[in-house]
């Protein structure tokens, strides 16, 4: 364990930023987002929920895949060559760090997504333990300990000290960059386990898949859904994308961008959308997080960050679905 006085944090960040691209939670208008280090940024280490999740840096909203062009009758195809420099994100919370495990299970399993993998290898996650949950937090329901976040480096911030614990080789390397600012210590940060939130997750086992899919109250649960994608795009684990061509007239750039299962043209096929009602689209989002993803990856697809709770203009959320979903003849 290492530590640094809280008052020296600006020096720590400046020293890190000199050697690696550093992203920090910073105030932007009324929200806090991860933003590149700059000396006069309003760094915010108390707000738990950045409006944007760290997902942005591993699975950007828009990403070019390749360009195809026709020149003098010859077709040429060139892979997108976006240079990815090493970077570090400071202040990632336990839920968001756990969310990267969810994304890894999709993008780093065969076939490995090279774009994601490149960014994942380049990025160092420096987590920051939470002290007190906010009104919308429920990470503990998914077995996440907010006071012991994972990541390449874990940090704990007290009133006057930041404790620093490298966990991985990547974390060790970053630690070396600022070793002269950190002191070794035998102390360990106080870790009050915050209140454990329990949700009735037992029913969401793959054996209940059809019963859950056919639950009688999806229609009632989804009636207020306005079919926007706010819940999807503020979610640290939502991972679906659409692939589209940008036609320049002489070439096309094929790119992918985030997509939402709440949209009417999600998984659009030649015959149309397989999910023709909003209730079916709504069901897809929660079945994916609570049943399909766990069935395939042995982990829930939700980390309880609560951003969707705060973002839904109609007050809908996964907690309600978990509590209210009725399984016919079961649970």
């Amino acid at each position: 364990m290492m530590k640094i006085a809280k008052e020296h944090l600006p020096r720590l960040f400046a020293a890190l930023a000199k050697q690696i691209d550093l992203l920090l939670p910073a105030q932007q208008a009324e929200v806090v987002n991860f933003a590149p280090f700059c000396p006069d940024a309003e760094i915010d280490l108390t707000t738990l929920k950045t409006a944007n999740t760290p997902k942005h840096f591993f699975l950007p909203q828009v990403e070019d895949l390749y360009t195809a062009a026709v020149n003098a009758g010859q077709i040429s195809i060139s892979a997108a060559d976006t240079p990815i420099k090493p970077f570090a994100i400071f202040g990632v919370r336990a839920c968001d760090a756990a969310a990267l495990d969810v994304l890894d299970s999709v993008y780093l399993s065969d076939p490995i997504d090279q774009f994601y993998q490149t960014r994942r290898q380049a990025g160092c996650i420096i987590t920051l333990a939470c002290e007190k949950p906010t009104a919308s937090c429920f990470c503990t329901a998914f077995g996440i300990n907010p006071t012991e976040p994972c990541g390449d480096i874990t940090t704990w911030l007290t009133d006057d000290v930041l404790y620093w614990q490298p966990n991985t080789e990547k974390g060790d390397k970053i630690t070396e960059l600022v070793a002269d600012l950190l002191q070794l210590t035998d102390e360990s940060p106080a870790q009050d386990i915050s209140e454990n939130i329990c949700l009735p997750l037992d029913k969401f086992n793959p054996d209940n898949l059809l019963a859950l899919f056919n639950a009688p109250n999806w229609q009632d649960l989804s009636v207020a859904c306005i079919a926007c994608g706010a819940c999807t795009f503020v979610c640290p684990t939502c991972q679906c994308y659409d692939i589209t061509d940008f036609d320049t007239g002489t070439s096309i750039t094929r790119y992918r961008c985030w997509d939402s299962c709440l949209y009417s043209d999600f998984t659009q096929m030649a015959h149309g959308n397989p999910r023709t009602t909003q209730a079916e689209r709504f069901r897809q989002r929660f079945m994916h997080k609570l049943v399909y993803h766990p069935a395939n990856n042995d982990q829930y697809g939700c980390v309880g960050c609560g951003r969707c709770v705060a973002a839904c203009p109609a007050g809908l959320n996964i907690v309600k679905v978990i509590k209210k979903l009725e399984v016919a003849g079961n649970v």
Partner: peptide, 16 residues
């Protein structure tokens, strides 16, 4: 531009 650069195109503004 500073404000609109934060837009994640979730379409909440449009759909609400």
């Amino acid at each position: 531009q500073d404000h609109l650069a934060r837009c994640i195109r979730c379409n909440a503004c449009r759909n609400i």
